[in-house]
């Protein structure tokens, strides 16, 4: 069953078209990344699915419930973690989770024990009784995630969950998200970080200017840009042309004299790497560095949208 279904979603803000006919289907248990640059419409879509704003056209369904017809029903089955760490700065971590649990209509005792569980799960036990204003960015985000998980929602929406975090904070949030997906939660996550989509997502939906441009696993999207590249650097610049000639049988080499680098698209995988090494060695060309490199999602995105992602 699909946990999230979007059909022909349209939304405009004055002259700006934020969603221009978006279709999306996310199967239960999947971690789906919505990847796109600023202004692509990612946040607008997530806000609509989270019942925070309406659509001008089309329809959306979350956990089998129509978002427009029964927003309260949807709210009971989702967790939402927005772009800000929307937790109470003044209260302690524990008091925050108790408050959010109470607002999810748990009893006072139920709220206390659920808060304790969530503090444990998200690694916040030690900081539990300190005001959130003293938390690191990563801790705040984890508290934010915990607050979104009070009722173990069927679908969790994450809007740019690691924007503004340092690498350590990002790693912590990624670990927490992976654990949630392992526990069976469907996650729809927006991101403008390609490596984040690459690392976390089962599938990626690429959006730009309110439209879906492509969809697939990270590997499929990379494959669309073509196969792997063989890249090597020769030790002496005057060997460059000879080196290019030596590997010309494997593909069409491009040379970069300044960096003493040869780059060619290959289709033979590791075998091509071995053949290249042999050919270069036979011609007596010294190589400083050689590697077979899969295309990055950056390149995939560039190829799909014609624009570079920040």
């Amino acid at each position: 069953m699909d946990a999230v279904v979007v059909e022909g979603a349209r939304k405009r803000f004055g002259e700006v078209v934020a969603l221009d006919g978006v279709d999306l289907a996310v199967p239960s248990g999947e971690l789906r990344a919505l990847l796109g640059p600023n202004g692509a419409g990612k946040t607008t879509l997530v806000r609509a699915l989270a019942t925070l704003s309406g659509l001008d056209g089309g329809r959306a369904e979350v956990a089998g419930i129509d978002v427009a017809a029964d927003p309260a029903g949807v709210r009971a089955r989702i967790g939402v973690v927005g772009q800000h760490a929307a937790v109470d700065e003044v209260l302690t971590g524990r008091a925050n989770l108790r408050m959010f649990a109470r607002l999810h209509h748990l009893s006072a005792a139920g709220a206390r024990s659920r808060a304790d569980e969530l503090l444990e799960v998200f690694g916040l036990v030690e900081a539990a009784d300190r005001p959130v204003s003293g938390y690191s960015g990563g801790m705040r985000r984890r508290l934010d995630l915990a607050a979104g998980m009070v009722l173990s929602p069927a679908v969790l929406f994450l809007d740019e969950p690691t924007t503004g975090l340092d690498p350590r904070g990002r790693a912590q949030v990624w670990d927490a998200v992976r654990d949630l997906v392992r526990g069976g939660t469907t996650v729809l996550m927006t991101t403008q970080y390609l490596d984040e989509a690459d690392q976390l997502a089962d599938r990626v939906t690429v959006v730009d200017r309110g439209r879906v441009l492509a969809e697939g696993t990270p590997a499929e999207l990379k494959a669309r840009v073509g196969g792997a590249h063989l890249v090597f650097v020769v030790r002496e610049g005057h060997d460059l042309d000879r080196a290019a000639a030596a590997v010309a049988g494997l593909g069409a080499p491009r040379t970069d004299l300044e960096r003493r680098r040869v780059d060619l698209a290959v289709s033979g995988g590791a075998g091509d790497l071995v053949r290249a090494v042999r050919a270069l060695d036979a011609d007596g060309i010294e190589v400083a560095d050689i590697a077979l490199r899969a295309p990055t999602l950056d390149e995939a995105f560039l190829a799909l949208t014609g624009q570079v992602v920040a």
């Binding site: 800000h84 700065e89 999810h104």
Partner: peptide
């Protein structure tokens, strides 16, 4: 500003609260 109102609005609580 902090998004706390949006969080409340996305929860199964009475929004007017």
């Amino acid at each position: 500003r902090r998004g706390v109102v949006d969080r409340f609005r996305s929860m199964p609580m009475a929004p007017s609260a």
